[in-house]
Amino acid sequence: MTEGYNFAYLDEQTKRMIRRALLKAVAIPGHQVPFGSREMPLPYGWGTGGIQVTASILGTNDVLKVIDQGADDTTNAVSIRRFFARTADVATTTHTADATVIQTRHRIPEKTLRDNQIIVYQVPQPEPLYRLESSRVETRRMHGLADYGLMHVKLYEDVARFGQISISYDYPVLVNQRYLMSPSPIPAFDNPKMDRMPALQLFGAGREKRIYAIPPWTAVRSLDFDDHPFRAINASEPCGLCGATDSYLDEVVIDDRGGRLFVCSDTDHCAERRAAGHIGKDGFAEAAE
């Protein structure tokens, strides 16, 4: 552990403040609770909210997984995982099933999360209405009144102009039939996973100084219209490496002649499938880890 710093970096006073905010967030599903976000040794916008939430819940018995874009080995995920390994001496894993706490940026793992897991989302912009109303004084008032007409008008205009809702990520959701909430910039593909998820979902926005939460088994509805139901977008082919047809795919440019390869964004999911013998058209047999 890093000398001179408290367990999990934050001082106990700060943890208590964040813990109080977390409890209120859980009690008011989808409501953004202001909190006294601290400067962290990582830049604002790089996961400071998620890190503060994780640091406030993490204990010595936890096993932490950190992903960015679904992958455990992207540089920012590596950096954050190292931070907790150094400051909290916590066990880390890349296996979704083995983790008790999963901190994520932009994805929800493909494997269904369990009742005894907590997923912590890094949130760049917690206010779902910010593109429609830039004043946070105004948006706060709108949340207070559950006045979400602006968003409905925006979606309706999308349908009128494009014949469909044009939001592909950070697709707004209504939590417990009350609060409009940003799911963070996850692809809309992941939105259905939030609905009645068995795991507790916590959201931290460090720069914007907001924490929010969705308790387990809570209804999370992606906004839509009866005649234009919510539809998740994904590439229309299987993973080139593991052949999965039900996972979210990244597009990899493999040459400068238009060559493309689609592979699972969830690297753990893909590796697990390949280890179990699933091979896609561009894949190859791998020895089980």
Binding site: E12, R19, L22, L23, I57, L200, P215, P216
Partner: peptide, 19 residues
Amino acid sequence: DPVQDAQRCFRSVLDAMSR
């Protein structure tokens, strides 16, 4: 153990508030 005991207690409260 102020740090670890508080963390364990908080997780119990968080779990209770969540369920």
